[in-house]
Structures are given as structure tokens and as C-alpha cells.
């Protein structure tokens, strides 16, 4: 792409570094900002800058947070004896949006994959162990739910964590895998359908 201005070119290059944004979209966004009043751009850059500078990660669960401890970990109505382990921050938001879970979280920051050079030490696994080992008697963790992706790396990570948690003798569960709600059996892939038959649950007509 050829640009009439060095300034435009620089802005487009920076904006197009964001995921999901190509050069054309970046150009559109840059030109859009030029058409707006100057304070629009100021507000945007100010908020981005303070986001980058002031954002904190919760010292307990590693979720994004405004304070030392995030609002979920500090929440008074949260069930403190259950920890749900997820790969990354968007997964916390996804589970929160279900309104079906009221426990705490632990964000790993990835899954184990030696090919990509990611080992257990690069993730927040040790802090999970420490967290469980050092909770006061009144807040003892009774269950860890592994809500990791249904991929080979997700499974490997789940296995690794389960092994590490063995010494605590607490319940370890993993989220169910199977047919999506409203899904037709015939369109479900064979692996998922096979798995859902193997891990079928009792049906109650009560």
C-alpha cells in the first residue's frame, strides 16, 4: 500500500499490528480519527495508555484487576471452596456470563506445549498449588474444576495439574464434553458424540 503521508503510514502500521485488523481497516480507522475532533483521539490514547500502565493482575487468580485482588476473589458472596482453572482471561468472562458458577477462578495464562516452548513453569500452576496449600482452615478448597480447552494440549495440562493436586486429596473435576444444547445428533462430529456416549449421565424423571 502506498500512502500520501508518512504520518498516515506510521499510524496504519501500528494499528494493523492489532489482531484481526488488516491494513485497509487500519487505514479506515486512522482516517476516521482524523475526521473526529481532536479530543476523541486524546481520550482514546489516554484510556489505552492508562489501561496499559495501571492494569493489575489479581495476586490470587491472575485475572485482570483494578486492585491487588480482583473483584471476584474479593467478592463476599463467592463460594471460596471451589476453584475453576481456565486457560485465559476471556474464559473467566465466558463462564461468568453463564451465571451458573459462583466459585473462584485461577487463570493459567496458557496451556503446556513444549513445541511452542511453554512448560509448566511458564504458567501459573505453582501459584495454584501454593494457593491451595496455604488457604486458612475456614476457606479450605474442596474442589478444583478444570475448564481447559478440549484439545490435546488442554488434556495434557489437565493431567499434569491433577497429578500435582493428588497430595491434597481434594476433588478434581473437569467440565463435561458433549452435544451442544439444541444440537442435532447427526451433525455432531463422531469424536464428540462417541465421548458423550462414554460419559453419559443418569437421567432422572423426578
Amino acid at each position: 500500500m502506498n500512502f500520501p503521508s508518512k504520518l498516515i503510514e506510521e499510524a496504519v502500521n501500528e494499528i494493523s499490528r492489532l489482531p484481526g485488523i488488516g491494513k485497509k481497516t487500519a487505514l479506515r480507522l486512522a482516517l476516521h480519527l482524523l475526521k473526529q475532533k481532536e479530543n476523541v483521539t486524546e481520550e482514546l490514547t489516554r484510556s489505552l495508555l492508562s489501561l496499559r500502565k495501571d492494569i493489575k493482575y489479581c495476586s490470587l487468580c491472575h485475572n485482570i484487576s483494578d486492585a491487588e485482588v480482583c473483584s471476584i476473589c474479593a467478592g463476599r458472596r463467592r463460594e471460596r471452596s471451589i476453584i475453576c482453572v481456565v486457560e485465559d482471561i476471556p474464559d473467566v468472562l465466558a463462564i461468568e456470563n453463564t451465571s451458573q458458577y459462583n466459585g473462584l477462578y485461577h487463570v493459567l495464562g496458557g496451556v503446556i506445549s513444549p513445541i511452542q516452548g511453554i512448560g509448566p513453569d511458564d504458567l501459573n500452576i505453582e501459584s495454584l498449588i501454593q494457593r491451595i496449600a496455604h488457604t486458612p482452615e475456614t476457606e479450605k478448597v474442596k474442589e478444583v474444576i478444570l475448564a481447559l480447552p478440549a484439545t490435546m494440549e488442554g488434556d495434557t495440562t489437565s493431567f499434569f495439574i491433577t497429578r500435582r493436586l493428588k497430595e491434597f486429596g481434594i476433588k478434581v473435576s473437569t467440565i463435561a464434553r458433549g452435544i451442544p444444547i439444541g444440537g442435532e445428533l447427526e451433525y455432531t462430529d463422531e469424536v464428540t458424540l462417541g465421548r458423550s456416549i462414554l460419559t453419559r449421565v443418569n437421567y432422572s424423571a423426578e
Partner: peptide, 16 residues
């Protein structure tokens, strides 16, 4: 990676 670090970690290789 084990070879580079000169150390075998049983718990890391176990899942595989």
C-alpha cells in the same frame, strides 16, 4: 529441552 537443561523432569513428561 531436558537435554539443554541437563535435567530430566519426570512429572513434565508423564502426561505424554
Amino acid at each position: 529441552q531436558f537435554a539443554d537443561r541437563g535435567r530430566w523432569e519426570k512429572s513434565h513428561v508423564e502426561p505424554y
